[in-house]
Design a protein around this nucleic acid. Structure first.
Lengths: 213, 213
DNA sequence: TTTTGTGAACGTGTTCACAGCG
DNA sequence: CGCTGTGAACACGTTCACAAAA
């Protein structure tokens, strides 16, 4: 099996979502063309992505929805539950915890940490906010969300790595250093806004105020 | 000027951030090597990225921090202010509005919308929540954040496009269709978690419970 | 000598196009 | 004939390596 690109993984998530919808509609079979349709993807891309993991379709027919869904669930590691910690119980951290969708997909937020003495001990949802110092390997955290201020982010990442956390989703706008066995993914809102700003600036050099009347 | 890749724009954001820091430290000059250092980028990449827009450095010397910062600010469109709307005053929408960093970078949240009758009329920060029906071109919104439930997202995007909004940052886990003149960027938390799940599953086939002792 | 700016080489991901199989 | 699976062609972004300039 070749190395799987990040784009392929993202598309697998997408296929999985489509399969869930299609399954809910009672559809039994689906073609690569139909799987591609909703995204801006080609059917060849779908087939290529899937081919990295096996041959799941039947020539002339397409893919069996239930079967493919099970396969992708396994590939993505969604056939188990993941223990998630949120570090930084500010706005973003709280927003994430409030989002119900995660639990249904296998992600259980089992701990929340904050460094503010005022916050520690308070409850957030069904959890009590803890100080990060109390995190141990016994917590068996699989992945963590860093939603702290940027200046604390690297230190938090170090503590997490030391506690055996193997996946980090970083919301702080700074590149984090982490050991090779820790996967770090970043969501950088500032960058997203700046990308939009760039696109909007490029689109109509000269007229910058509003869209054409 | 060639088409600029998304990765280049993201790196420009990074360079800009580094330049801000370096300028604050009073540094006058910086080399491509130093600009690259903090990210996992090569110095050649930095020079190539910048070369798409002009020749900002001096051979043998490097780049003047202030000058380059001004140039990148212009390239990214950060030399003006952008009128931003938040649609969906739930957890994520509120979290974004509470984030102070945006205003300082030129992004002013000037309107918040929600469809819930209970929410409309309430105040959020310094703004009063409005129904999306009241959005007009007169609001002169440049870009909008969609932080509604997924089922409403496409309809919201249509309304935004019709009101002349030219940039959308979509937090709903669904690909949005929009006219060519509207730039859509997506932040998909579910996909990020699933990517982590994939990485963690791949890392140690077999042992799935926790990191090695 | 230092460091930029850039064509050329390289590597990686996407698309094409068709063989293979139902 | 349908549609998948896949090598080959292609497109695009990154890295190399060096000429040009300070």
């Amino acid at each position: 099996m070749p190395r799987i690109s990040e784009s392929t993984v993202r598309r697998l998530s997408h296929y999985y979502r489509v399969l869930e919808e299609v399954a809910a509609e009672g559809q039994k079979l689906i073609s690569s063309h139909l799987l591609a349709e909703r995204e801006g993807i080609t059917s060849a891309q779908v087939r290529k992505d899937l081919s990295y993991f096996g041959s799941f379709g039947r020539r002339g027919l397409g893919y069996q929805v239930d079967h493919l869904r099970t396969e992708i669930r396994g590939i993505l590691g969604l056939d188990r539950r993941w223990r998630v910690a949120v570090v930084g119980a500010g706005h973003i951290g709280s927003a994430l915890m409030a989002y119900r969708g995660f639990a249904s997909q296998g992600f259980d937020v089992v701990a929340v940490f904050d460094s503010s003495p005022a916050r520690v001990g308070q409850s957030l949802g069904e959890l009590t906010i803890r100080h990060l110092d109390t995190l141990t390997r016994e917590d068996a955290i699989d992945m963590a969300v860093i939603s702290t201020p940027v200046r604390a982010a690297q230190e938090v990442a170090d503590v997490l790595a030391a506690a055996g956390v193997r996946g980090i989703l970083n919301f702080a706008p700074r590149k984090l250093k982490a050991p090779a066995e820790v996967t770090v993914r970043a969501v950088d809102m500032t960058m997203e806004f700046e990308s939009l700003s760039f696109s909007l600036s490029q689109a109509r050099p000269g007229s910058r105020r509003r869209a054409a009347d």
